[in-house]
């Protein structure tokens, strides 16, 4: 009997009687990471990585009942062994490994392969069946090394400062923002929107080493901002606040920026293809490394990606989930047109 099934409420492990990243309220929710398409309000108990706990408490509610695990640690629930391994997606993101009577299944949530300098890097886990995302599951999505992308962003910022323009980077407040802060920190001060500053506080408190940033307040002057890097979440994209800055130019950091059509649609001044999801070679590498006999393909280019895996001799099935439907910025862009396969 399979270790997991896909139900209306989410991915369910019958033997252990718990769910992984459910979208309806359940008793026991094993949680891969803090993005709101993977963790929702209303579960009786949550099990997540130590670093995810303060994040979801801040984002959802202080009253949640949360148990935690470190990477490599395990607990047993009704005889099913649950352990966490790094997914490399965002701070605290985990692949969930389930083992029952020698059968191993890994639910990877969202993941990326490249070490981003702030998230514990992805670790492949051997398993019989593997649940994989496919947000960028087409071979046109291949990332450049992040150092190259960050050099591009730095050059852009320097050009802007020289031309008296204010550089505004649009980045999701959990994950992408911290990655930018970590990698762009240097001589140019970084100013962050409230929602990002709040999360940073929690993350620093949890013991993550995050470079210093400045919270934007009503007192922050336009002159200061023009000489720095401004990071705001996607909700601010078309806001009056940005328009009122001194000659603002916006840059979007997302894997979708790889493609011209997406770049132009976003009506930003610059697009940087920087993603917290695996690219095509990354997905293939990860799946091969698991040695899985069966792959379940969730949110993204599910049809194309699973067909390709099958052609390659890896049994794969498309699964309809509610992942990628909100909040995670990269999935949101995707929502605009590509989820029709589900």
């Amino acid at each position: 009997m399979a270790l997991i099934e896909f139900t209306k409420k989410g991915i369910y492990c019958k033997q252990g009687d718990f769910y992984v990243d459910p979208w309806w309220p359940v008793d026991y929710a094993v949680t891969t990471h803090g993005h709101s398409d993977h963790v929702r309000f209303g579960n009786k108990y949550y099990l997540c990585h130590t670093l995810t706990k303060p994040i979801i408490k801040r984002r959802i509610s202080e009253d949640l009942n949360v148990e935690t695990l470190e990477y490599g640690e395990n607990i047993s629930r009704n005889g099913v062994n649950i352990s966490f391994f790094p997914a490399g997606h965002i701070i605290g993101s985990a692949q969930v490994r389930l083992e029952y009577k020698g059968e191993v299944c890994v639910i990877s949530g969202d993941y990326k392969i490249e070490d981003d300098g702030i998230t514990t890097p992805f670790e492949p886990v051997k398993c019989h069946s593997f649940v994989s995302e496919s947000t960028f599951g087409l071979p046109v999505y291949k990332w450049q090394k992040q150092q190259i992308v960050f050099n591009g962003i730095r050059n852009w910022v320097n050009d802007n400062i020289n031309q008296q323009k204010t550089s505004v980077l649009i980045a999701y407040s959990l994950g992408k923002a911290q990655r930018l802060i970590k990698n762009l920190a240097g001589d140019t001060p970084i100013y962050v929107h409230n929602s990002i500053a709040n999360l940073n506080e929690v993350i620093i408190e949890a013991g993550v080493n995050l470079p210093e940033t400045i919270r934007i307040t009503p007192e922050t002057t336009k002159d200061e901002l023009r000489k720095g890097i401004v990071i705001v979440p996607p909700v601010m994209r078309d806001s009056r606040w940005i328009k009122n800055l001194s000659h603002p130019v916006t840059g979007i950091c997302s894997g979708w920026m790889q493609v011209r059509a997406h770049r132009r649609w976003q009506s930003a001044d610059a697009g940087f293809a920087l993603s917290d999801h695996a690219d095509w070679p990354g997905l293939m590498e990860a799946i091969r490394a698991t040695g899985a006999e069966k792959v379940y393909v969730t949110h993204g280019f599910t049809a194309a990606f699973s067909r390709f895996l099958n052609d390659e001799g890896i049994e794969a099935a498309e699964v309809l989930t509610r992942f990628g439907q909100e909040d995670d910025e990269e999935n949101k862009v995707d929502l605009a047109g590509q989820n029709e396969n589900k």
Partner: peptide, 15 residues
Amino acid sequence: TPEWLFAESYANVGD
């Protein structure tokens, strides 16, 4: 690249 996968990619990229 299989021809169908090229077509899928083309449909997404648009060019």
